[in-house]
Nucleic acid binder design. Structure first.
Length: 119
RNA sequence: GGAGUCGGUUAGACGGUUGCGGAUAGAAAUAUCUGAGGAAAGUCCGAGCCCCGCAGGGCAGAAUAGCGGCUAACGGCCGCCGAGGGUGACCUUAGGGAAAGUGCAACAGAGAUAUACCGCCGUAAAGCUUGGUUUAUACCUUGAAGUGUUUUGCACUGCCUUUACGGUAAGGGUGGAAAGGCGAGGUAAGAGCUCACCGGUUUCACGGGAACGUCGAAACCCUGUAAACCCUAUUUGGAGCAACGCUGAGUGUGGCUAUACAUUUGCCCGAUGUGCCACGAAAAGCGGCUUGAGUGUUGGGAGCAAUCCCGCAUUGAGAUAGAUGACCGUCCACGACAGAACUCGGCUUAUCGAUCGACUCAAAAA
RNA sequence: CGGGGUGUGGCGCAGUUGGUAGCGCGCGACAUUUGGGAUGUCGAUGCCGCAGGUUCGAACCCUGUCACUCCGA
């Protein structure tokens, strides 16, 4: 399953205005329902983070973490993840566990039994 | 070994699992190959490529500024000359014109591109002085104590003071800079006024391909500033891949007009073209896009060098919200600065280190 | 990709035909008040973003560079 990406500015603005936000030390997640049965992801990395190399690294870390949890995420939602400066100082495993923690508390992850039974 | 100068190379490596962009094969799953830099950065120059209702002239504007070479081109590079710095290796250098003209030179100083305050000298006028002791010499006082004569006087000379007019630029505490410097002659006093020497500029001669150089000759309007205006020489149409082309969609409303508008720094003339401007609606996709002044070469040749020629090998990103990540293992110096966006040549800036080569200085030892 | 602008005391700004760097607010001390505020007097605070150069002399002129910011496509 591939990740569809948000591209247009108006999509981002709709998620910022209508969606709910959840904060971690490394990033902020905005979640909003969409009209499709897809999962769409947008990543925002501002100039505050650093130069082009640092911004690219932040994007890759978020993409890697998101694709790791992708099979368990409920469909039909738009996600926008905004990177914060601290994300450059940690390893990818911490980003992943932090993302899992947030999504689980919100209830966006499917239960693990399906995963186990599939195994 | 110490201190230092210059230049080059490199920019973690290997293996595994799992993901991303591109190409090829395939109906598909998938497989194979390949995938960021020395600066990819800043966007400071120069080009290719490409487009513009032709790009023609003039004025303004802008850029460059020793000479020669290299290059597609350059404001870049190489070599050389001049100037400055360093004991030296070597480094720095916008380095045309001040004798076309204009401007500026604060404070200080008499005076700042010429001046005359003090001083020195000349002329004229006015004033003051020429005393005391002594036979005399001499002594005292004084800025100075002279001469003639008919000797309580008069005249002249000299000294001093003041004023006026003129000469002068030797000297004067300033200043970054005071008519290039210094000595002699000369003069009433002085002065490149004259002369010798030294410096500078220009012209000629000689040497060099040229900048330039010279115990050469002559002339001379000899403060500094042109990164002040300016003058001289050379260059300059503009715009940039969000260029531009194709497909698709759309071609509505309002205003301005031919004495108009456009041709992308301003103005004038010329030339060419015919609508132009604003608002609204809308939608994007594909090409351009990577074989190119390409990359490598302890192969050969030319050249001091930059660089060029020949040969051989090779094809090494092409994304479009924008591709290299994550995890594990081993080793080491424990990994800095940093991400292609049409493409090249330079410049500048950032950078943890590692390593190689050439050379200089000082001291010691052999 | 192209074109501009700014950088000066803690903050906001002046000052650029080159000649000793200023204003307002803020800060400190003193006076005034029973005390505070307001007011008055006095004072401190600057390598004029950084590095070179031109000049006797640079915040100002020139070159390079860094940061911030605006505009157009």
């Amino acid at each position: 399953m591939k990740i569809l990406k948000l591209k247009e500015n108006r999509d981002f603005r709709r998620v910022y205005n209508k969606g709910k936000s959840y904060v971690s030390p490394y990033f902020v997640v905005y979640i909003n329902k969409n009209r499709f049965s897809d999962i769409r992801l947008g990543i925002t990395v501002g100039k505050k983070i650093g130069n082009a190399v640092k911004r690219n690294r932040a994007k890759r870390l978020i993409t890697a973490a998101f694709s790791a949890v992708l099979p368990q995420i409920l469909v039909g939602y738009d996600f926008v993840i905004v990177a914060r400066t601290k994300i450059l100082t940690v390893k990818s495993t911490e980003v992943l566990s932090s993302l899992v923690k947030i999504l689980k508390s919100v209830g966006m992850l499917e239960n693990k039994e399906n995963e186990k039974s599939s195994d």
